[in-house]
Design a protein around this nucleic acid. Structure first.
Lengths: 202, 202
DNA sequence: CCGGTTGTTGAACCGGCGTCAAGTAAAGTG
DNA sequence: CACTTTACTTGACGCCGGTTCAACAACCGG
């Protein structure tokens, strides 16, 4: 009694702490294995907690996954907020630098986040799409505000899709980078920057 | 007796026909719902067949999904085979045209195929990655054979990653295109072509 | 030290996957 | 028209992971 399977005495955390811990474990597991290879029991065991507790914090496994994705998307958006007033060509390099910094620092969460693209159900997808749309909006706004790009691109209908595609490009490159890392951060940054300018080529 | 739930008399197909039919139904369902929202029973019912028969053709649900993905990847590679000798700038437009033709004609399969990216287990992922690697190889070979691109790009380490990223770009744009289709096929083609040339910009 | 609040447990339930044995009937073969 | 072959059905069962819920125990105020 009073002990769990690890042999340590049970610790009672605050709701916030426990929630955070569970999401953290989830991010790690979901980054390593696809959705249905992640056992709810596995999450509980690693967290040193019972299966039932997870269902106290999250209604279903999917909601749990959605929460992991949402937490990561919030963190990502917070870190990559645009700096208004600066020309796109400069802002791009700086923005990509912080983005890549985030990717390196939260590789697990980043991978888990991008699993929501194809793996999730409607609810998970909605969270994912909202995050993507926010990034997209951020970029489009920065482009529109720039005297070099704004006037030209505003009139073209494919600008939005191009930006969305570029996000997919960047994501794929980053995931590949995390995987093998045959490239340095600067190379990745320059490649992605070149890609955006190329896609929008005038 | 002698009738299944649809009320029609049972039809006996050849192994190949039945297999093809099941994969076809699978492609449709997997394109509409994520992996675990697709019941094996649902597939059987739509095919007008018993649950047991599916397990006669495919050992497990995952093998079934893997077979759907593989079938689609084969079809895709068959249709987008490169034409040697032709300069990349010309080949690119033609190749993208057939690719987009494939995407439109087999939208279900295309979507189902790209679910394997994040949804599948190891076996499914392997099939997916093999298909992607084949496309990548195809493009790299075409680039290497071209007098304009070959000599320059062969020396750069980021060419492979750039191509992989471009595939992600193209995929994202196509999925978006299928979804809302605010763009015409020519626009999508030109956008993707511009993207590749831009990424490889010298 | 006691009682209430609340984080937490353990076990049972449910529903889909996967198995199997025994059979049914549609096509080919003579 | 028998006879064989084999695609296909049926239904029952075990298993396993997601999900539920009543009871428990750790902390806190009095």
């Amino acid at each position: 009694m009073g002990v769990n399977q690890g042999g340590r005495t049970r610790r009672r955390l605050s709701t916030e702490e426990r929630r955070e811990q569970l999401l953290s474990v989830g991010a790690r597991l979901f980054s390593e294995s696809p959705y249905d290879d992640v056992w709810i029991e596995q999450v509980a065991e690693i967290a040193g907690v019972s299966r039932g507790l997870l269902y106290h914090y999250f209604p279903t496994k999917r909601d749990f996954f959605a929460a992991v994705v949402e937490r990561e998307s919030e963190r990502m958006l917070r870190m990559t907020a645009a700096v208004p007033g600066v020309p796109v060509r400069e802002q791009l390099t700086a923005g990509l630098d912080t983005y890549l910094e985030y990717v390196e620092a939260h590789a697990h969460g980043y991978r888990a986040f991008h699993r929501a693209d194809a793996a999730g159900d409607q609810a998970v997808r909605r969270v994912y799409r909202r995050a993507l749309a926010a990034q997209e909006r951020q970029i489009l706004a920065a482009l529109a505000a720039d005297p070099e790009f704004g006037p030209v691109l505003g009139t073209r209908p494919d600008t939005r899709i191009a930006v969305r595609g570029w996000l997919a490009f960047t994501t794929a490159v980053c995931l590949e980078w995390l995987r093998g890392s045959e490239l340095g951060r600067e190379q990745v940054r320059d490649l992605c920057a070149r890609a955006l300018l190329g896609v929008l080529s005038l």
